[in-house]
Amino acid sequence: MKQPLSNHPFNNRKLRIAEYTMPVLLFLCAFISVLTTIGIVYTLFSESISFFKEISMSEFFTGTKWAPLIAPTSFGVLPLLMGTFLVTIIAMLIALPIGLASAIYLSEYASARVKKVVKPVLEVLAGVPTIVYGYFALSFISPILQTLIPGAGLFSALSAGIAVGVMIIPMISSLSEDAMRAVPKSLRYGAYALGATRLEVALQVVLPAALSGVISSFVLAFSRAIGETMIVTIAAGATPQMTGNPLNSIQTMTSYIVQVSLGDTPHGSLAYGSIFAVGLTLFVITFFLNILASAIAKRFREAY
């Protein structure tokens, strides 16, 4: 004889409800993260489309003058792109050698005792809010640059770039160190047993084996530097211009967005729409850099 389901010895209705509802609720939580992405893409695209109805894409992407607030207005994004890349390249010139060298030191040379001190310090450096780096750039780096280099202004791509560089050192060093530490010990032993020195093991065996992980960390840091906002808003100035001179005051994509949102630019105006077009440009660049970084890192994981 079949028992009714409600008091079946191997069935418990109350428990079953949670078994059915929880996965759905949990899926909804996970789906919110997808919705966020959809929200970002939708917001940026929908507002940018109305902006591009007024300003042609070619004018936006090839124009060399950015003057959205002062008549006659001009919306060529190249000066902002150039400012962004100027700061980013300065930052990478600083962070790349220092980050990589300290990764090699921490992974191949440092004793456990040294690591125990140095790694937390780098972690603290990574956790310092960017506004603090902005303050540091303006009240420490800039004055030093001004005394060292005659003609340097208080606001310059160089000052902001140095601060951004310091900010991304820990990122490069810790991600690269992770990649280098993941190289199997047996490879190191193989080289040592042939009579290699520590340097030779580090540069000829470990670094090549970890290369894609290391490069991936560079790309991620690059992307992070491009998206950095407060340091450049505070220290790089607000002068959009096509210049390669690091001593000049410039404006980046991010600091332009902040500038507009700080002022009382009316909703619906062209200048207001321009922050979405610039935001979209920024989003697309960092998106592809991040995809690139994870594709490179994936190759590394496949090798081991």
Binding site: S186, L187, A191, A193, V205, A303
Partner: peptide
């Protein structure tokens, strides 16, 4: 060594 450890080259 116990396990073969050729360099990945």
């Amino acid at each position: 060594f116990q396990l073969p450890n050729p360099f990945p080259s």
